[in-house]
Amino acid sequence: MKHVLKILTLLVAISAFWIGLLETSLIPRSNAWLLPIYFVVSLGCYGLLMVGIGLTRFPTCPHEALLLQQDIVEAKDFLMQKGVDVAST
């Protein structure tokens, strides 16, 4: 099944549940009308929260940059001895 269909199915299921709530009046109608707005807002909050968490925990590796510089020096020495043209341009 195409992925977009899965998402649409999920949305339809949620809508059906919502309409059910509206029809059966389990909760006050005025509250039920607001549920889709809550849904969209919470989805947005979830997105922002995930981006925020991702940013604060963004894994960095400054040490790796130093190691790479060492590797580059080592590689240049070796290659120069072997006659490979590694002069910086």
Binding site: M50, V51, G54, L55, F58, P59, T60, C61, P62, E64, A65
Partner: peptide, 15 residues
Amino acid sequence: GGVHGWNLMRKLTSR
């Protein structure tokens, strides 16, 4: 894992 050499904007776009 990790990334080095990205500024805040680049990290934000990536996340």
